[in-house]
Design a protein around this nucleic acid. Structure first.
Length: 749
RNA sequence: GCGCGGUUAGCUCAGUUGGUAGAGCAUUCCCUUGACGUGGGAAGGGCCAGGGGUUCGAAUCCCUUACCGCGCACCA
């Protein structure tokens, strides 16, 4: 009977690998060990250069999806590998309040369930409801992360909206304000009428839709014809722009016209601007400074007046009876009707047209002039006695090589984005987020009617001060993440963690290169004078088995938790990693996950075979008496270890994982184990080619047993970053619980 | 318009510094009952998108065309 002697195989090996029972037990073994915390690591794991990484904080809305599962898998591989190679390893968890995203989710929910808007509830009540929701989703998310097996230091968990991060935000804001890099300005911004807030340029998505291009004259008396897809905005026109060299219009430059356009008096000055393309349309452009970003810029250059004709609800503020108060879409038709009636309309063409939509609410973005807060990206300031701009800092961080982006072609994408970068609008008219550290009060004395503005860390002394109602763009606080999680701006606490900043690597989705990666570079180079990370590793999108984007409307979401329940976390991790290079999109299908579940079981059985055929034999790390053939096998394996180490050091996880899979199954199991069967049975094998004495045969058997034990235990180590649960479980059984694989050393050979 | 990718076996993709192609899945056939049928062995299948160039030699480097995807800008 088995299960009696000390060396016999544990009973669980007589059954298929049971990941359900194993994974939870192993995770708590790790958590109890304390080794997720760099300070509690065994000494031998602290010798190398410190390794640090922040988790891209998941939004507190929603659940884990396959994209987050991929992110967690890659990052956990990085971290486990670093730990095993003896680096003092820190991985910091956290969650993101995701301002607009979260608020709009809760608002929608309340609207649906109770029929109430945020204004019905009021600021305080809405925030209370969000906090309530966030507590629940936070717990769900962290539980899901544990299921994935992340070896992250929970004791350092942060939230982008907690008190410490708020202090960091206020500190950063104040410094930027004092340096003149944050300013308040009346400018055209992207207004989301649905969400009732401004959004940044990056929060816009474009959708191509059919539209009509109308060509017409403002009036019979104005000789210039213009084209537009938005005739309703023409009520706000203050100029007609033409190219300075355009012979057709040269004679009109400088002239002024006055007319009543669809019930609204407009004054137009003909100006020359090189941004006008003479070949487009009629070559003349109606300038609407209040409702177009480009026109606003033209207006700035020519000191043109700005006239707002559309309000925050995307409704007309002026015009004839059929127009005023109407939504822009309806007003458009009314203006066209008027143009037709007046005989001014010359042409109506069908064109394809890009519509700007707010990423979070889907609302059609309306450019509006508003008094908002901005970060100036082109303004010069002094740093270390050198004149620079935020844009320059962002560019230099990468051109200097201080930051390396993987895959490297994203560096070009990054520069391309920066070259088009405009001032960053950071104030949002929503309630969930960091309140601007800005206070106002009505001035007294001879400045009555004006407002006093105070920017500081706390509310100023004196009566009548009211804090700005607006909150900051969520990416403002995320930009500080690499150091706000390390204690900044508290000098004492930050000094304690100085070794961990710049962080070693930032691993995140390529889709937030601009939103987040660029903003972190901006904040860190500006506030600390150093880069936030040395390397950026970008992963791509996880698509469904057919290559389609995963979306709610398609209903093709593959829930990682379902897959974990069905096939185990290790299988899910492997399926996400193998064959997926940095930056490239991947497809996930159940078949692939299933294949790695089979692999997990294969390893389980490999272990069973090795343990049963090596009963009584202990792994001897100093053993050298290998037979010639075994020595050859051993050096082949050592070469593999070396190769894998190179892959790991160069972030080629997709290759390393595949090579390991191949070696374990098709070399170790199919060839070495098969040969060992023959050998141990006394038959003909690769080492044992014929007659030999008993002592010779004993020697050969011993050599093979040591080989099997050594290679298996190394495979288990090499595979640990990829399949942590199964390998830890096997390790525990092979070593009867004397050590924890997570902190064993990586076999470099 | 500017920029970035991709195009390799039926499918999904490798191919790291140039040496006339690999894996998994799928297909077909065969084998195996003491590690594992969640197994083992084997076979078929690719003028590496088209064209041109560099080279003794190109899937790999350069140019070009086509198609697919993506980002940014424009969107009068």
């Amino acid at each position: 009977m088995k299960g009696q002697g000390q060396d016999s195989i544990p009973d669980k090996f007589n059954k298929p690998y049971d990941f359900v029972a194993t994974e939870e037990r192993i995770y708590s073994l790790w958590e109890k060990s304390g080794f997720f915390d760099p300070d509690k690591l065994p000494d031998r794991n602290k010798k190398g250069q410190p390794f640090s990484m922040v988790l891209p904080p998941p939004n507190v809305t929603g659940n884990l999806h396959m994209g987050s599962a991929l992110m967690l898998a890659i990052e956990d591989i990085m971290v486990r590998y670093a730990r095993m190679t003896g680096r003092k390893t820190m991985w910091i968890p956290g969650t993101d309040h995701a301002a607009i995203a979260t608020q709009s989710v809760i608002e929608k929910k309340i609207q649906k369930e109770e029929g109430k808007s945020r204004y019905d509830l009021g600021r305080e009540e809405l925030l209370r409801r969000i906090a309530e929701h966030v507590t629940v989703t936070h717990d769900t998310i962290t539980r899901q992360m544990r299921r994935m097996g992340v070896s992250i230091d929970w004791s350092r968990e942060a939230f982008t909206l907690d008190d410490k991060r708020n202090l960091a935000v206020r500190t950063a804001f104040n410094k930027m304000y004092n340096d003149g890099l944050i300013y308040r300005g009346y400018r055209v911004v992207n207004w989301d009428p649905k969400g009732q807030t401004t959004i940044s340029d990056d929060e816009i998505e474009y959708e191509t839709r059919p539209a009509k291009l109308y060509t017409f004259k403002y009036s019979k008396d104005i000789p210039i014809t213009i084209s537009t897809t938005r005739p309703e905005t023409k009520l706000g026109d203050t100029a007609i722009a033409v190219h300075p060299e355009d012979e057709r219009y040269k004679k009109y430059i400088g002239q002024e016209f006055k007319t009543i356009f669809a019930g609204e008096e407009i004054n137009l000055k003909v100006i020359a601007d090189i941004s006008v393309d003479p070949a487009f349309g009629t070559g003349a452009l109606g300038v609407t400074p209040a409702h177009s970003m480009i026109d606003w810029e033209i207006a700035e250059r020519h000191s043109l007046p700005m006239k707002q004709v559309i309000n925050e609800y995307a409704k007309m503020m002026v015009g004839s009876e059929t127009i005023v108060g109407k939504k822009t879409t309806e007003a458009r038709l009314a203006v066209v009707a008027w143009l037709t009636k007046e005989g001014l309309l010359e042409k109506e063409e069908d064109i394809e047209h890009n519509v700007s939509l707010a990423q979070r609410t889907g609302g059609v973005v309306e450019p509006l002039p508003k008094l908002q807060w901005f970060v100036a990206v082109n303004k010069e300031f002094e740093q270390n006695g050198k004149k620079t701009t935020l844009k320059k800092l962002m560019i230099e961080a990468v051109t200097s090589g201080a930051i390396k982006i993987i895959p490297d072609h994203f560096e070009k994408v990054y520069f391309n984005w920066i070259s088009n970068l405009r001032d960053w609008c950071i104030s949002r008219q929503i309630w969930y987020g960091h309140r601007l550290p800005v206070w106002y009060r009505s001035a007294t004395g001879d400045r009555v009617g004006q407002k006093e503005v105070f920017v500081g860390m706390e509310s100023p002394k004196g009566d009548g001060w009211k804090q700005d109602e607006d909150t900051l763009d969520t990416w403002f606080s995320s930009g500080l993440w690499t150091f706000s999680t390390l204690g900044w701006p508290d000098k004492k606490e930050f000094d304690l963690h100085r070794d961990f900043h710049p962080t070693t690597i930032l691993e995140t989705g390529s889709d937030i290169l601009f939103f987040w990666v660029a903003r972190m570079i901006l904040m860190s180079t500006y506030l600390l004078g150093e880069v936030p990370f040395k390397t950026v590793y970008l992963h791509g999108l996880v698509r469904d088995a057919k290559g389609r984007k995963i979306s709610k409307s398609l209903g093709n979401n593959v829930d990682p938790l379902d897959m974990i329940a069905k096939y185990g976390a290790d299988a899910v991790r492997m399926s996400l990693i193998v064959g997926v290079g940095p930056g490239s999109d991947s497809k996930i299908g159940e078949d692939k996950i299933k294949a790695y579940k089979l692999f997990a079981n294969k390893l389980w059985n490999i272990t069973r075979f090795v343990m049963s055929s090596c009963e009584g034999e202990k792994l001897d790390p100093d053993f050298t008496e290998f037979s010639d053939h075994d020595q050859k096998l051993m050096s082949d394996f050592d070469a593999l270890c070396k190769d894998l180490t190179t892959d790991m050091d160069n972030y080629r996880y997709y290759l390393a994982a595949e090579k390991l899979y191949h070696y374990a199954w098709h070399e170790f199991a199919d060839i070495i184990l098969e040969d060992s069967k023959k050998l141990f049975a006394g038959g003909v094998s690769a080492t044992n080619v014929g007659s030999q004495t008993d002592s010779e045969s004993e020697k050969i058997n011993k050599s093979r047993k040591q080989l099997l034990l050594r290679i298996l235990s190394s495979i288990i180590k090499l595979l640990h970053p990829f399949m942590p649960f199964l390998t830890e479980e096997i390790w525990q059984e092979m070593n009867t619980g004397n050590s924890i694989l997570m902190v064993e050393s990586w076999p470099k050979s």
